[in-house]
Every structure is written in C-alpha cells, then in structure tokens.
Design a protein around this nucleic acid. Structure first.
Lengths: 114, 114
DNA sequence: ATAACAATTAGGTAATTACCTAAATAAGGT
DNA sequence: ACCTTATTTAGGTAATTACCTAATTGTTAT
C-alpha cells in the first residue's frame, strides 16, 4: 500500500501506467514517449514494479512491461473504504449498478424503451 | 491531481484522512493520535488542505478539519479510468450511474431528448 | 569475434521532504 | 492586563528522490 501510493505520487509513473493500460510495451517504447533519459525511466519502472503495479518479462533482447490486473484497483478501493468519509459515493455507484441491472432484467422480461 | 497523489503518498496523511472519515476533529485532537510534534502534524494538514482533500474551519480557539466530500473519490476515480486497464469494472459502474441519472432526469421532467 | 542495440547498474548532484525545537500569533479565562 | 491553551510559522538538519552521464550486461546479427 505504501509503495503503491509512493509510486502513484509521480506524474511520470502515472503516465506510464496509462500507457500500459492499453497494451504491454518494451522499456524502450516507454522511454521513447518521454523526454527523459532511459535510465531514469528504467528507475521509474522499477518503482512501479516494486509496488506490484506492473510486471516485467524479458523476451530476447527486450524487456516488456505490463500492468498487473486489479492490483491498482484493489489498493485504491481498499483505501477508499477506510479513508473516504462516506465510502458512499462508491457504494452509491454499486447500488446504481445493481439498479440498472434490475431494470435491465425487467426490460428483458417484456417492457420496451427507446 | 498531482497534489492529491502527493498527499496520499504519506502514511501519516492517509491515517489523518481515515480519522476524518468519521467526524471532524481539531488540529490538537488529530495531533494527539500521533506520536509526532504538533508542528509536523500541522504541516501534514496543510498538505492535505492544499490538495483539496480537507478544509479547515476556525472556531474560537480551535481549528477544526474535515474531509471535502467526494474530492478524494473523484480524483481516484478519474485516474483509474485512464490508468487501469481493467478500469472496466469501475467504468462500468460509472456508466451505470450516469445511465441511472439520465433515466431519473427523464422520469422527473418527462421531456424528450432523443 | 566484433559490432550494434536494449536495458540496467553505478555514481554523483540538486531539489525536496519530513521531521525537530523555538518563537510567534490568536483566543479565552481570571 | 496576564497567563494558559491552541495552532502555526520560522529555521535548520538528515534522509530521500529525481534526474543526469558513463559504464556494464545481455542479446542478436554479421
């Protein structure tokens, strides 16, 4: 948890995570998206890896990085539940989701709309 | 956003937020929960305030702090949407929420809106 | 074997952060 | 007015962080 939040405290690292949201990328491809030295990016990648947010996989000459599914979400969610005065917003969303599903179920059963 | 994540990168500050989840507290009451000097806690409180996560209100001799509802959640949510590959579960919740609100609005005013 | 490329490690510096104590500001009680 | 309590500001130090360049390691191709 500590490591995750430390990792997220850097704009560069958050941006890296955003890039990795869409597909895995090699260290070089990531570095190419920033105007910063490769060693610096490499260091940011280790921080993200140490936080358990991404994993590395060496394939031949390249090292590919990809996000660890859910690890970010789980941490943030866990934190919100105890730190958000009213985890209510999220709970409200969940309730909203349930509500939509109920209506969809009802719709599927016969009624129509738009 | 930057300030929020920086604020959250400290365990002490996350703990302060957790305390403020339940009720407002004076600076002294907060400091009393930590084995750390009051000035240090005061500084942590400014960081949280600068991030927009809490607000201060002076009443008499005391300064009370309380969380700003939703500001934490909104930031985290916004971030997750672009950084989490599987932000999908959450995105689905948000979409569901938006959908419910659209329907509620429609139900309430009865006007058409294609 | 050598060259070229990919990535990391090593080592150093500047800037930031987290703490502390002491001093200042502000409000209340006597 | 004076003393106490609540909190913040000032100022300083130690530890951490973010960056850089240069050197190293590992892989692929000639």
């Amino acid at each position: 948890m500590q490591r995750v939040f430390e990792a997220l405290s850097s704009a560069v690292r958050r941006k890296i995570l955003a890039y990795l949201a869409h597909s895995e990328l090699s260290a070089g491809e990531i570095a190419g998206r920033f105007s910063m030295s490769k060693p610096s990016i490499s260091q940011h990648l280790s921080v993200l890896e140490a936080a358990g947010l991404i994993v590395r996989e060496k394939r031949g000459q390249f090292v590919f990085y990809r996000q660890v599914e859910d690890s970010l979400l789980n941490t943030l969610n866990g934190f919100v539940q105890e730190a958000c005065p009213v985890g209510r917003p999220l709970r409200r969303e969940s309730a909203a989701l349930a509500e939509v599903r109920r209506r969809e179920a009802a719709d599927a059963d016969g009624s129509d709309r738009s």
